[in-house]
Structure formats: structure tokens, C-alpha cells
């Protein structure tokens, strides 16, 4: 399966499209179905697809463990940081209205960053869990 010609060419065409689609879902969460969580899962699925075609080792080189772990932690930090920013700017915790001069615009900004945080964490966790399961099996053989 690893060297399957058809799958390799398909992956070359599809993986960038999947990742772009994930980003699209992320940015258009305000207007249609979608949002941070779905975007994170789709992006993780795209990278898992790469792992299925080229093997886990190549994927670990593509997205190293350190990056994934940073993603896991930084997502939560972004979310909490947005709350903290609201606190520092004189509002309540997780109150986005003070993030900009105009409350509605502030809400937009807050929602955007919160979604970014969720997407980052979810993508990181999914990838990390996948790595854990897959690599454990491979080295046991």
C-alpha cells in the first residue's frame, strides 16, 4: 500500500485541497456551518491521510512532535489569553466587547481568536493521539 501509485498521486492533489478546505471552514465559521473544532479535525484528517499514504515516520518528519505539542498547549493558551486580554482592558473575563473600540467589532475579534485557539488545540491533540497509537504499533512489530 505504501508505494501505491494511484494513492500517491491522489494524495499529492488532495492534501493541499483538504488543508485549504480546513482553513476555509475555520475562517467562515461565522457565516456558515463550521468553526474551530471542525477545522481542526479536518486539518488533522488531512495530515493523517498523508500518514496513511507515506507512513508515520515521514509524517513525523513533516510535522515534528515538538510542533504538535506546542500546538496542543498554545491553543489553550490563546483561548485563555483572549479572556485575560478582556480582563486587562477593563472588562470581565472572556468579555470580548472591550477588545476593540466598537463592542460588535470587539466581539468579532474575540470570537475569531477563540476559534483559532480551539482549532489549534484540537488539531494538535488529534495528531498527537494518532502518533501515539500508530508509532506504538510500528515499533512493536
Amino acid at each position: 500500500m505504501k508505494n501505491d501509485l494511484v494513492l500517491r498521486v491522489l494524495g499529492r492533489l488532495m492534501i493541499p485541497a483538504i488543508l485549504l478546505f480546513a482553513l476555509y471552514v475555520q475562517f467562515h465559521g461565522d457565516f456558515g456551518p463550521g468553526g474551530g473544532f471542525q477545522a481542526g479535525v479536518i486539518a488533522a484528517a488531512g495530515i493523517i491521510f498523508y500518514a496513511l499514504i507515506h507512513g508515520v515516520a515521514a509524517t513525523r518528519r513533516l510535522v515534528p512532535d515538538g510542533v504538535v505539542e506546542t500546538m496542543v498547549a498554545s491553543g489553550v493558551l490563546i483561548y485563555a489569553g483572549v479572556g485575560l486580554a478582556g480582563l486587562l482592558l477593563g472588562g470581565h473575563y472572556l468579555d470580548y466587547s472591550v477588545l476593540s473600540h466598537d463592542p460588535v467589532h470587539g466581539q468579532h475579534r474575540g470570537i475569531f481568536w477563540v476559534e483559532v485557539g480551539v482549532a489549534t488545540t484540537v488539531c494538535g491533540v488529534m495528531l498527537k493521539i494518532f502518533y501515539m497509537f500508530a508509532s506504538r504499533g510500528n515499533s512493536e512489530d
Binding site: G29, D30, F31, G32, G35, Q107, H108, G110, I111, V114
Partner: peptide, 11 residues
């Protein structure tokens, strides 16, 4: 925000 689910979820 047109998608109410997102608004409620995040805000």
C-alpha cells in the same frame, strides 16, 4: 455574526 451557533458557542 450570522451563524448563531458560533456566536453562542464562542461568546
Amino acid at each position: 455574526v450570522p451563524n448563531v451557533v458560533t456566536a453562542v458557542l464562542a461568546s
